Amino acid sequence: MGKIYLILVFFIGLVSTQAQELKWHTDVKEAMAIGSKEHKPLLLFFTGSDWCGWCIRLQKEVLTTPEFRKWAKEKVILVELDYPRAVPQTPAIKQQNYELQNAFGVQGYPTVWFATAQIKDGKPAFGGLGKTGYVPGGPVAWLEVANGILNQK
C-alpha cells in the first residue's frame, strides 16, 4: 500500500510540475523586468479568452502544446493581455491592457506581438519585432512564423 501511495504522489507531482511549466504574466512591468534580466523578448498575447473563437483555437492548437512550452521557455517571456467579456479584471489590469492595445495598434484578436521592452523615464518603452495571430497548421507552422520574427532582430 505504501508503494502505491508513493507512486501516486510522484505522478501527481509530475503532472502538477508539467502544468506549471509556463508562466503567463499579466503585469507587463513584471514581465519586462524578467525579460531584461534573462535577455529575452516579450510575447504579448492579445486575446478575448472567454469569447474569441480564434483565440481559443490558438490556445488549444498551439499555446498549450509541448512544442510551444519547450520553445517558449527558451525564447520568450509570456504576457497575456486579456479583454474578456465575462471574467472580472482589476481596474489596473484593464487600464494596462487597453493602453497596450492602443500602443501596439491591435484591432483584432488574437494578435501576438513580439517586442523588446525597457523602462525609459519611468515608463515602458517597446521595440516591436513583429506580429502574428492564428496560423493554421498547429505548433510547427506557428513556431516557424514566430522564429522568423525573432530571427530578424
Rank of each mutant, 00 (worst) to 15 (best):
K3D: 12
I4E: 14
I7M: 11
I7S: 07
V9L: 15
F10I: 12
G13N: 11
V15D: 06
V15K: 13
S16D: 00
A19Y: 04
K23F: 05
D27I: 02
K29S: 05
E30Y: 01
A31F: 02
A31V: 09
I34W: 01
K37R: 15
K37A: 13
L42A: 08
F46L: 02
F46M: 00
T47S: 15
T47E: 12
G48K: 08
S49A: 11
D50V: 10
C52D: 04
C52Q: 08
I56H: 10
L58Y: 08
V62M: 03
T64S: 14
T64M: 08
T65Q: 08
P66T: 06
P66K: 12
E67T: 10
E67Y: 09
F68K: 01
K70F: 06
A72T: 05
E74F: 09
E74I: 03
V76L: 11
V76C: 05
V76F: 07
E80D: 12
L81Y: 04
L81Q: 04
A86R: 15
P88G: 02
Q89H: 13
P91S: 07
A92H: 08
I93M: 08
I93G: 00
I93V: 11
K94F: 06
Q95W: 07
Q95S: 13
Q95K: 15
Q95R: 15
Q95V: 04
Y98M: 11
Y98C: 04
Y98N: 13
A103R: 15
G105D: 10
Q107E: 13
Y109C: 08
T111D: 07
V112D: 05
V112G: 06
W113G: 08
F114C: 00
I119K: 13
I119A: 01
K120I: 15
D121I: 01
G122F: 13
P124F: 04
F126M: 05
F126D: 00
L129C: 03
T132P: 01
Y134K: 09
V135Q: 06
G137A: 06
V140S: 13
A141H: 08
A141D: 09
A141C: 02
A146K: 09
N147S: 15
I149G: 09
Q152I: 09
